[in-house]
């Protein structure tokens, strides 16, 4: 089997917050009527996680589920489980109007670690980083492009964007986290 690769080959920048490309993982976009019980059941079977509330993020033993829009979820699974998860979803959702797609290669994912994660993100997005609660997924703007942002705890933030703008987003975050750029408002 070929080696797993990520769009930026695991780039990493150390500033007052460390910005690094997240470890490889499988991402599946699932669209459909989320109020349909079949979708919740299929998601639970594949990831072990319950359907998240709007803007929420849930985790199960085999993956995470992020709420993207009123009819869209993003599933995170282990990189070698993507195909199985996708097949599992499709077979369970037979007859239910839906779309399930492996979007792993379409996306770049970053991890920010350090005490200043809220501040580093606040410099580049219009989201109110003061009030953003952990495990709230906010799709927003990162400088000039779209991306999703959430905190898993007070010192760890995650960013997902299109891989086509991955280098741009990485550079924006690394610049925002560069030493000497501390503002100290949070």
């Amino acid at each position: 089997m070929s080696d797993l690769a990520t769009p930026l080959n695991g780039r990493r920048a150390v500033g007052y917050v460390t910005v690094s490309e997240d470890a490889p993982r499988g991402m599946i976009s699932l669209r459909g009527d989320l109020s349909d019980g079949g979708i919740a059941e299929a998601v639970r079977a594949v990831t072990g996680a319950n359907l998240p509330e709007p803007l929420g993020l849930t985790a199960g033993e085999a993956g995470q589920v992020a709420w993207m829009s009123p009819d869209e979820l993003l599933l995170f699974v282990a990189p070698n489980q993507t195909t199985d998860a996708l097949t599992g979803l499709r077979s369970r959702l037979e007859g239910v109007h839906h779309l399930a797609l492996d979007v792993t290669d379409m996306r770049a994912a970053f991890r920010l670690e350090g005490r200043g994660v809220r501040e580093v993100l606040a410099k580049v997005t219009p989201v109110d980083m003061q009030t953003l609660a952990p495990d709230t997924v906010r799709r927003t703007r990162l400088a000039q492009v779209a991306g999703a942002v959430w905190l898993s705890d007070e010192e760890t933030a995650h960013v997902v964007c299109f891989s086509s703008v991955g280098t741009y987003v990485f550079d924006v975050l690394a610049t925002s986290a560069a030493p000497g750029g501390e503002v100290g408002v949070f």
Binding site: P54, L55, S69, P70, P126, R138, T140, R141
Partner: peptide, 12 residues
């Protein structure tokens, strides 16, 4: 009203 977010003009 779709996702319940108070968005900024630049996100719209």
């Amino acid at each position: 009203p779709n996702c319940g977010v108070d968005c900024d003009e630049t996100e719209l």
